[in-house]
């Protein structure tokens, strides 16, 4: 078998392991009942992505990536979760029963989706110089599962967190295929996130003021 003859090096193995941690935290978000714990998970996930960027930067001598990692730490690990947490504290809601499916079936569905993503990407002839190729498949899985998070959880916070973690998935993918991207482009991506935070922040506020809840299921009744 391919796997038995090919043992990944320590760098490849640990990089893949970090990408896996990112994917697993995505799964954990899917499950987390408390909105607060979801945001903490997002912060943790961003930390893992930052760690991945640092690993790549250190082993591939891409100094610009250190700057990106620094930015992404400040923004995604500290700032964005902080803002969302604060909005949440203002709205005084901790728990919104927003699972549209049972946890076990959600996880199984997410497994199927990520298998799909991983195999689709695996069949593409993309090879990377900076990160092991499996990480790209994992990035695709992260993106697909975060779509699932947005679809299957019906509260505003989950949808915001789902969207932000989608960006984390994209970050992993961009680390794989284009680690040497010009600094300005990467930074532009990061600041896009800030815009999204503002939009979601306004959305949360307005929604909570109007409906006194963070659940989006009441929106279903808004038919003409």
């Amino acid at each position: 078998m391919l796997a038995s003859t090919h043992v990944p090096s320590v760098f490849t193995g640990s990089a893949d392991a970090v990408a896996l941690v990112v994917l697993l935290s995505e799964f954990a978000m899917l499950r987390a009942p408390l909105l607060r714990s979801q945001i903490r998970l997002y912060s943790f996930q961003s930390f893992a992505v930052t760690g991945l960027a640092v690993i790549v930067a250190a082993t591939r001598n891409l100094n610009e990536l250190f700057i990106i990692a620094g930015f992404s730490f400040v923004l995604k690990v500290v700032l964005v979760p902080g803002i969302i947490m604060r909005l949440l504290r203002d709205s005084r809601v901790d728990l919104v029963g927003s699972h549209r499916l049972g946890v076990a079936s959600m996880v199984l569905l997410a497994i199927v989706i990520s298998v799909f993503g991983i195999f689709v990407v695996g069949s593409l002839p993309i090879h990377s110089q900076s990160l092991p190729t499996p990480a790209l498949g994992l990035a695709m899985a992260i993106i697909l599962v975060s779509f699932l998070l947005v679809i299957l959880r019906s509260d505003v916070v989950s949808q915001a967190v789902g969207f932000f973690s989608l960006e984390n998935g994209v970050s992993v993918a961009s680390l794989v295929v284009a680690a040497g991207l010009p600094l300005i482009v990467e930074v532009a991506f990061l600041f896009d996130l800030l815009v999204a935070v503002v939009v979601f922040g306004v959305l949360m506020r307005v929604h909570h003021n109007r409906t006194k809840t963070l659940s989006t299921s009441v929106l279903d009744r808004l038919r003409g």
Binding site: H6, I111, P134
Partner: peptide, 12 residues
């Protein structure tokens, strides 16, 4: 399942 998947990807 993930353990098996990363092996199949060749990165496990």
């Amino acid at each position: 399942v993930l353990a098996l998947l990363v092996l199949f990807l060749g990165g496990g």
